[in-house]
Structure formats: C-alpha cells, structure tokens
Simulated assay, not measured.
Amino acid sequence: MDTDVLKDDLREYLAAARAAVLWKLDGLSEYDARRPLTPTGTNLLGLVKHLTGCEMGWFGQVFARPLPGPPAWYGDDDAEDPNLDMWARPEESREDIVATYRRACAHADTVIGELPLDAVGHLPSRGPDSPGVTLHRVLVHMIAETERHAGHADIVRELLDGAVGRRTGSLNLPERDEAWWAAHRQRIEDAAATFG
C-alpha cells in the first residue's frame, strides 16, 4: 500500500475522533461541560484538556517539535493534583481549552504532514537512548487514545442530557422513541436481575 494513502487514512480517522470529542460539548452549559459524572471525576472539558496534552506530547515532544506557547498546566507534575489535565479549573475558560486543543491538533497535523510514517521519535520520559517510536505507531496510538476518550465523552453526554451519537445527523443507533428506549432499558435490567 502507498504510504501516502495509509497516512491519509490514519489522519482521517484521527480527525473524525477529534471532531466527535468536540461535538459532545455543543449546546451544554458551562456547568454541564465541567461537572464530574463518575466517581473518578470524568467530565467533558477534562477529556478535551487531557487530549490536548496527548497531542502536544505524542506529536510535539516525541518528535522534538514542541507546540510553541503551551498552556501553563502542560508538563506540570503537581504532586497535589496528578490529574491536573483531567479537569477545567475555574480560571480556565471553555473557549481557551477548546482553542488550545484545536491549536495542538493543528500543530500535530503539521508534524504529521512533514514527517514520513517511518520517522522515529523518542519518548522524553524514557531518555534519549530509549528505543524509538515511529510516526505510524504514534498515529495508531493517538487514534486509539482519542476514540477511547470519545467513548467516555459519549457516555458522559448521555448521562447529562440523553444526547447520543457520533456526530450531528449520525446517531449510530436505531431510530426509536423515548418509550421504546425506556422499555428496552427495562428489558436489559430485567435480564440482568435474573442473575442478581
């Protein structure tokens, strides 16, 4: 297979995953975009902020092409808050977090465009003598990472207001009314209860 075609395929999947994550913020209040909905604090803006760091690290740091002007929290190993990249502090606006994510993605896309898939980078945390990692491997990793968090975002958004789907106009679910979904959920609950 032509490596340019392969690179384009990988970029397309990464772009779709990025868009799915951002779409989950559409129409939400500031509170709902920030509020934790799991015992570990998973929230939508935190997922975007975390993915921002991933984009900057995997494409910028690994290939020695850091994003100019990174956010203050990036690279801050705060012993008091090891999850600093997983939530939005009150002074961090949604607009800034999303803009920084878009900037990190654009920078990553530049790196992807400039390097061949077999370009080798190094994980700074493992030192300069560590085995390298190829751009191909980083792209596959970031698609998996972003899709994983897009799944988290999908569940968090459903818990917030019932909105589901991959993107506008593509719910990827059977088209049924609210009563059908309530009955469906009850059917699943009843099946599970037989084992409880």
Rank of each mutant, 00 (worst) to 15 (best):
64 A>E: 05
149 H>K: 11
134 T>F: 07
187 R>F: 13
118 D>K: 12
105 C>M: 07
8 D>F: 09
57 G>V: 03
177 D>K: 06
87 W>P: 03
149 H>I: 05
192 A>P: 01
46 G>P: 08
17 A>R: 09
168 T>W: 05
146 T>R: 10
166 R>D: 04
186 Q>C: 02
193 A>G: 06
79 A>F: 00
108 A>E: 00
69 G>P: 05
51 L>T: 12
34 R>N: 01
120 V>A: 02
1 M>C: 03
58 W>L: 05
185 R>H: 15
2 D>S: 12
101 Y>Q: 09
3 T>Y: 12
118 D>H: 13
95 E>T: 12
135 L>G: 09
170 S>Y: 13
148 R>M: 11
21 V>T: 15
141 H>S: 01
154 D>M: 12
157 R>M: 03
105 C>L: 06
24 K>L: 06
122 H>P: 01
6 L>M: 11
135 L>F: 09
117 L>T: 02
41 G>H: 08
24 K>Y: 02
101 Y>K: 07
97 I>R: 01
48 V>A: 05
14 L>P: 02
154 D>V: 13
135 L>T: 09
109 D>G: 10
125 S>A: 12
182 A>C: 05
19 A>V: 02
112 I>Q: 06
114 E>V: 02
180 W>E: 10
66 P>W: 00
145 E>G: 01
143 I>N: 03
76 D>H: 12
21 V>I: 14
125 S>M: 09
154 D>N: 11
85 D>A: 10
144 A>F: 12
8 D>W: 06
15 A>P: 00
189 E>I: 15
141 H>M: 06
189 E>H: 14
112 I>M: 06
136 H>R: 15
121 G>M: 01
165 G>H: 01
27 G>C: 08
137 R>S: 12
61 Q>F: 05
187 R>V: 10
151 G>L: 08
126 R>S: 10
114 E>T: 06
193 A>Q: 12
99 A>M: 02
118 D>W: 08
37 L>A: 03
155 I>E: 03
173 L>K: 05
121 G>E: 00
128 P>F: 01
193 A>C: 06
67 L>N: 00
83 N>L: 09
164 V>A: 15
165 G>A: 04
72 A>E: 14
44 L>M: 05
13 Y>I: 11
8 D>K: 15
